[in-house]
Design a protein around this nucleic acid. Structure first.
Lengths: 191, 191
DNA sequence: GTCTATAAGATGATAGAC
DNA sequence: GTCTATCATCTTATAGAC
C-alpha cells in the first residue's frame, strides 16, 4: 500500500497550513522534503488555492467520518461530547498545530473564495452536530443550559477554537485541556 | 495637531494586521496610501518584526488604558464585564477585523520572538484582569461559577477570541454578539 | 507524471544622495 | 527624514522536453 504523490503533497500541505498558515507556506516547503520539483505540485494542483481547497475538503470529509464513528461507538451525549473535545486536542499535537479550519479562517481575507466556503461549511457542520448532541443531552437530563442548543453549540465551538489559538501561541496543551474541561463542565448539570 | 509619519505607519500596519495578518501584508501596502517610499518605512522601523512589535506594544498599552478607564467608570463587576465584551465587539468593526492579538497568535510559528512575547503578555494581562473581575463578582453574589476564577477567565477569553475568528470568517458581527452574550450569561447567577 | 528552464513579479532590506 | 537606485531572494506559475 503505497501513498500516491498527490496524497503525500496533501499530507505535507495540511501540516504546513496547521503550523504556519496559508500565507506562510510555499511550494518549496513541499517539494523539498518530497524531493520533487515545484512543477510537479502544479501538475496535481494547478494553483495554491486548488491545493488548499483539496486539503480542506479532505480534512472535512475525514472529520465527518470521525464524527460518524464516534456516534456509532458512543450513544451517550456526555461521552460524545468528551470524545469530540479529544478530536480537537489531538489536532493540537504537541501544541504547535492549530485546527486546520481555525487557521484558514484566520486568513479569510486573502483566502480564495472556494476555500472560504469550505471553511464556513465546516463550522456550520460542527455547530449543527454539536447542537444535536446538546439537545439530546438536555432532553435526557444530562446537560443543563439556557436558550437554544444552536447558541450553546456556537459558544462551545468558539471556545474550543479560541482555546487552541491561545494554547498554541503559548505552546501549552494543558491550557487547552483546562479550558475545554471548563467549557464542557458548564453544560453538565450537577450543580 | 498633525500625526507623525511613524504614527500613520503604525495606524495602517495595525489595520492591515487585523484584516490580513502579519504574513499577508507588505511594506507596499503601507507606502502606497501614504505616498511615501518603502525605504521611509525602514527608516522608522528597520525590520518588519520591529514594525509589528511597535504595533503590538501600542495596542497593548492602549488596551490597558481602556481597561483602567472602564474600571474607573464602572465599579459593578457585571457592567465591567459587559463593557469588556464591547471592546472586543468594537474591534471587529464591520466584521472584517480580527482582534490584533488573535491575528498575531495565529501566525505564532513565523512571528519574531519578541512579537510573540508581546502577544502572550497581552493574553496573560487579559486573563488576570478578567479573573479579578470574576472573583469580585462571585464574592458580591453577582456571578456563579465553579472552580478557580483563572480558569473561568481563560475560558471566557478563549470564547471571545474564537467567536471573533468564526464571526469574521462569516462576516457576521451578530454571530459574535450572540456567542459573547451566551459566554457572559453562563456566569450570571440567575438560574 | 516528472523534469528543466524560465518567466514576471513581489518581497524585505540597504547604501548613499539630497 | 525622505528620496532613488539597487539587491538578492523568494513567490506562484507556465511551456515544453522526456
Amino acid at each position: 500500500m503505497t501513498t500516491s504523490t498527490a496524497d503525500r503533497i496533501l499530507d505535507l500541505a495540511e501540516g504546513l497550513i496547521q503550523t504556519r498558515g496559508y500565507e506562510a507556506f510555499s511550494y518549496a516547503d513541499i517539494s523539498a522534503p518530497l524531493n520533487i520539483r515545484n512543477a510537479s505540485i502544479h501538475y496535481h494542483f494547478p494553483s495554491k488555492g486548488d491545493l488548499a481547497r483539496a486539503v480542506a475538503a479532505r480534512y472535512r470529509a475525514a472529520f465527518a467520518e470521525k464524527l460518524a464513528r464516534l456516534e456509532a461507538e458512543h450513544p451517550d451525549p456526555t461521552r460524545r461530547l468528551m470524545r469530540y473535545v479529544r478530536l480537537f486536542q489531538d489536532a493540537l499535537r504537541d501544541g504547535d498545530h492549530m485546527c486546520l479550519y481555525g487557521m484558514l479562517a484566520s486568513t479569510s481575507a486573502t483566502l480564495p473564495e472556494r476555500v472560504l466556503a469550505e471553511v464556513n461549511g465546516f463550522f456550520a457542520d460542527n455547530e449543527a452536530w454539536l447542537a444535536r448532541v446538546l439537545a439530546d443531552g438536555r432532553t435526557q437530563g444530562m446537560f443543563r443550559f439556557e436558550g437554544k442548543p444552536e447558541t450553546a453549540a456556537a459558544a462551545l465551538l468558539a471556545g474550543l477554537e479560541g482555546a487552541m489559538l491561545v494554547a498554541r501561541s503559548r505552546r501549552d496543551v494543558k491550557h487547552f485541556a483546562a479550558v475545554a474541561l471548563r467549557l464542557v463542565d458548564v453544560l453538565t448539570s450537577d450543580d
